[in-house]
Design a protein around this nucleic acid. Structure first.
Lengths: 309, 309
DNA sequence: TACTTCCACAACCTTCCGTTGTGTCTGGTC
DNA sequence: GACCAGACACAACGGAAGGTTGTGGAAGTA
């Protein structure tokens, strides 16, 4: 049972003759003859009555026609169901740094008609996220993944740079600076708890430390954000780094200062991972949107050398 | 979009791995790979996630699976709809001689569970009836058609012989005979109105006339059965011929005699016409039923030489 | 009778499909 | 840590199926 044969049968039934159906289908009249003959041979019942002035449906053909149409409709519906864009785009927005979530939300606000689901994968590892994209769990994921580590079948585009800011308590020596250079942080203790080894976060802060001679304790024990904020507020030497777009609830409950970093501005580079060749129109629109309106730091920025640019 | 590819996809989705699906479908694992790959290429979306321990559905695959199943169900339903026996057998039973209608009715009484429609085609011509069978307007038709005139694609089986009886008024010389020979009718006027020239009826009565030297007025004007009955009842020389199974309403309202014909018994031979190779089980059952229980005259009968058998 | 229309048949060719053989990757095991 | 087994993909080959052109026959029409 060939779908094309069914389509041919329906066409012949509607136009009433083989030649016209052949023209409509873009094949030769003989091909139509063959398809109909094969279909009739398959179901062992004559469907069309051939006359000298065309063809019309036999009794069985009249019975069969609506069923054939139903099959074709089901086929079209199946194709429609997986057509790019008929399903909301599932984007993995990180929960740790919320810049991607904000950017995706802004995109959604400016294109409210598109289908878009923002989810958060439980994977902390960029490679696992890439795998999830490859497997179709999500359609795209924001990660900081070196371009050469992007697995086959996955494309990556660096679309979002999240500038880092210093977060210190009021007693910190840099608490009143309008901005600081990364190199100024040398000698200060920087604590960024909750980073798991083997993740791109760890690699990022290691690269940052190496680049500016900092002492960042990114792999230490995590006592929770509340404990970190308490420690910052009380300490004259402890600092942490947050994304400039991040909004932490405890910045309102603690007297902390957010100080921009410049010269250069360290940015956490988000690479949007997606399946190579994915035709989803929302994905294309999201990429275009981020390329033009994405909040990338305007002037000299620093990013790990292992991230594509 | 190939139906076999859909079937393969559904099988893989259900059993979870290519090899097992290949076994179930009776093809090689590589063929399954190709089919799935072709399907994914066609809809431009990955449906299955290949792992080292089998395959599972991707997000799009989960969306696609029910649609694929729906297509397969529609295909199965379409095939079922035209399967021989899923539709009642349409049999053309003649209205002029009701022996076929009686025989079909008896068959239906003994097989009440079968689907059977008895209709009466408006064609008076056997060739037209054969054409109607060929075109599927009906599945079978009782006609007296020479075997060599059966068109291509149509098979004929002589299954029903309707013996003729003489119908005369009480004043007819043969009115009190227990039976008569056809040759005895020579010299008597026999009127069989309503026969159209060019029909098998006309040919039958012409053959009957020639065989026994009768004078049958079969092509005369038709004033209606009532007029014929009146004429028979009043006439001392007029007769007509009826099928022995026929029940005419006016045999109860007129004092007429039905006299069997013997030595030999002229029979009107009904050939059941049907499409060659028709697999309809009711057709086969009807043929078998008529072969064994059909009311065929037991001993020497006469039929036109141009009819088979 | 000649002509047109419409479908079927035949021959040829291309394309696609299925098979066998082999490769690669992953996960478990000794 | 290297090996092995399972699972899917790739390559090459053979055959079948479907498409095309060319032709024929049947029925209606001028």
């Amino acid at each position: 049972m060939d779908v094309e044969a069914l389509r041919t049968f329906v066409t012949v039934a509607e136009v009433g003759q083989f030649q016209a159906a052949a023209d409509e289908l873009g094949v030769s009249q003989q091909a139509v003859s063959k398809r109909i003959a094969a279909l009739e041979r398959h179901i062992e019942v004559p469907l069309l009555v051939r006359t000298s002035r065309g063809s019309r449906l036999s009794l069985d053909g009249q019975v069969f026609l609506p069923h054939a149409k139903k099959v074709l409709a089901a086929v079209a519906q199946a194709e429609q169901a997986v057509r790019p864009g008929s399903r909301p785009l599932r984007v993995d927005v990180l929960n740790r740094r919320i810049a991607p979530a904000q950017a995706v939300y802004r995109f959604y606000r400016s294109h409210p008609e598109v289908g878009l689901d923002a989810v958060t994968l439980s994977t902390e590892n960029a490679a696992q996220a890439a795998q999830a994209v490859l497997e179709g769990t999500v359609d795209a994921s924001f990660r900081a993944l070196p371009a050469d580590q992007v697995p086959a079948g996955i494309s990556g585009e660096r679309l979002l740079d999240a500038p880092l800011e210093l977060l210190v308590g009021p007693g910190h020596p840099l608490a009143d600076a309008p901005w600081v250079r990364p190199a100024d942080l040398a000698g200060h203790r920087i604590w960024i708890p909750g980073i798991q080894p083997g993740t791109e976060w760890a690699a990022f802060y290691r690269a940052l430390s190496d680049a500016f001679g900092l002492s960042i304790d990114a792999l230490g024990p995590n006592f929770g954000d509340e404990a970190l904020m308490d420690a910052l507020a009380d300490s004259a030497s402890l600092a942490t780094l947050v994304g400039s777009g991040d909004r932490y609830l405890w910045t309102q409950t603690h007297d902390l200062r957010r100080i921009p970093l410049r010269d250069p501005t360290p940015v956490y580079p988000h690479v949007l991972l997606f399946r190579s060749g994915d035709q989803h129109p929302v994905l294309a629109a999201l990429r275009e949107h981020l390329r033009t309106t994405g909040p990338r730091a305007p002037h000299d920025v620093w990013a790990p050398s292992w991230v594509d640019r």
